[in-house]
Design a protein around this nucleic acid. Sequence first.
DNA 1: CAGACTTCCGGAAACGTTTACACAAGGAGC
DNA 2: GCTCCTTGTGTAAACGTTTCCGGAAGTCTG
Lengths: 341, 341
Amino acid sequence: MGRKRLHDAADGRPTVHTVAARAGVSIASASRVLNGVGGSAETVRRVREAAAAVGYVPNAIARSLQSQRTGLIAFAVEDIGNPVYVAMMRAIEAVVAESGRQLLVHATSGQVASETALLRRLAHRYVDGMIISPIRVTDSHIEAMTASPVPVVVIGQLPDEVPVDNVRTDSRTGAALAVDHLAAAGRTRIAFLNGPLDTVPGVARDAGFRAAMARHGMSADMIEVGDFQYAAGRAAAERLLARARPDAIVCANDLIAVGALHALLVSGHRVPEDVALVGMDDTELAQMSYPQISSVSLGSEIRGRLAARLLLDRIGDADLPPRREQVPPSLVIRASSGGVA
Amino acid sequence: MGRKRLHDAADGRPTVHTVAARAGVSIASASRVLNGVGGSAETVRRVREAAAAVGYVPNAIARSLQSQRTGLIAFAVEDIGNPVYVAMMRAIEAVVAESGRQLLVHATSGQVASETALLRRLAHRYVDGMIISPIRVTDSHIEAMTASPVPVVVIGQLPDEVPVDNVRTDSRTGAALAVDHLAAAGRTRIAFLNGPLDTVPGVARDAGFRAAMARHGMSADMIEVGDFQYAAGRAAAERLLARARPDAIVCANDLIAVGALHALLVSGHRVPEDVALVGMDDTELAQMSYPQISSVSLGSEIRGRLAARLLLDRIGDADLPPRREQVPPSLVIRASSGGVA
DNA sequence: CAGACTTCCGGAAACGTTTACACAAGGAGC
DNA sequence: GCTCCTTGTGTAAACGTTTCCGGAAGTCTG
């Protein structure tokens, strides 16, 4: 006794030293065999056997310290309960997996503190890069992003001068598409249920809605604001219906639209006969509802895929100039606005 | 020249050496100041200033190698598109955040290879512990779990002899609750839309349904199987309606139930008048639908919270005996089965 | 059989932190 | 003025890997 666990880690688990000692070889040889590079047949056999016997599991942290890579990518998102982020995540995951890396998701609950803390923590090298889709962009976000030691790609609008890879869409135009569609269908009293006006998408969609309404000569006086959730959408619709008689509603995302649909049906309105409905993001939620909800697609899968590619490119070459991709919105017409069922 | 970036990391970023050199102190002092322990007023000032000047960001990997902790917890889940996992995640997150750690989520897409690869990779020390909710449990899962160097907690059924902390529910009884409720409401032709029979929940719910039907003297001959997704639920319901005339449908989860609801409404059935519907998991989806869907709650928040606590306890003391928590199911009655709207 | 090449191996130095330990300086107590 | 304690500092050893480098042994060529 006394020499037991001599080469083990602090917690008693075997290390490469343990394996090497048991196999009667140097740690260099053990390491080589365990990584499958070099080693004579006999050495390979002995090391493999020793590793299996002691149940050796490499310590990835130590390996990463040496290799300067972890093989992990993070996707930080504000509300993973929103299917649009799930769609993005799936697209990102596909690209990331293809590169042999693993994707981790972090839900920030949209708190600025939490988001920057995340950047501070993960970006301290636990991951090789991260994709982040903030709905609010503060100075501290920007500072954290530019100071990050690992590459960061942003999905969403970003001030032009920030030198960070960036995939954006144009939800201003997206909101306008919805209005145009409803106006063309003869709707004249179009309401808008938006998310918070201190968010980037909130202001863009508000601007798009107002501009399109003006263009059609209609007044934008039926606007309700809540957050981007189902419950808020339902509540906003109830407030709206209590004070006005819209014949169409544009919603700033699909969660809000589903909430609005619920409020409409509960209060006996027919959709789309009495009130037409258009959501935004074109998530699976829009298809799962009955009637199915027309929705402005902002190309979430495409944005996810592009963001992943930008990130991998930058990991491959840190000196690339900052790039910027733009994905155009498009309208998907379904039953809720009088399209085909 | 020649001595420039002498103390920088390989990638040119400043290290604690860089900061120490610039501040004219030893790396020990620099480290102490940066961690907020000790240091004279003058030293603190100089180090802080130097760190800010060079934009020092600590390398978390190196720190973790030394401290043997990362402060990260992982939640591995099969399909993050299913709201039940989002609910669990939120509950876990709350507990984990309280302990000052950060939660990461990994969606495994239910592939065994991916799940065990995950265990192999993350559990190699990138995280301090992980919670996993597999719907299939294979030998390779069990092996990976027991060999894991970091604590693992399983949400879901597990063979009794596996010495792993475990939070389970009883979805067998859950399915029976649904049948009892429908039978009590006078439904006599009860169908069942289940998930795959090679999954743990799939077999449990099948057994529960059949047992309850037998107990009520009804034959369990209207059963359709798909996967646990919306599309499968809708397709299964369509198959069912093409060959039979149920007056009630039990669904193995809420996604399936929403799919079934859609199929029912499209084909002109009234819910609950013609066909009553009960889902399972009691996710927000059940409340977002119209009519709202009755659902068997399996206490996902509670299970998440318990799992997180078990994990933290085990991280605190690895020698604890394996523990097992059980959460009972309960029925939440809504409009789709004739409850209150 | 001499030399040139190849293959395999072990020692030791990294990777960027934290921290145990030793030591110096300064103040308080007698 | 001596000891004793406190406070601050620096040196160096960890943490568990990978990998560079030099040397030993074996193989091929002419």
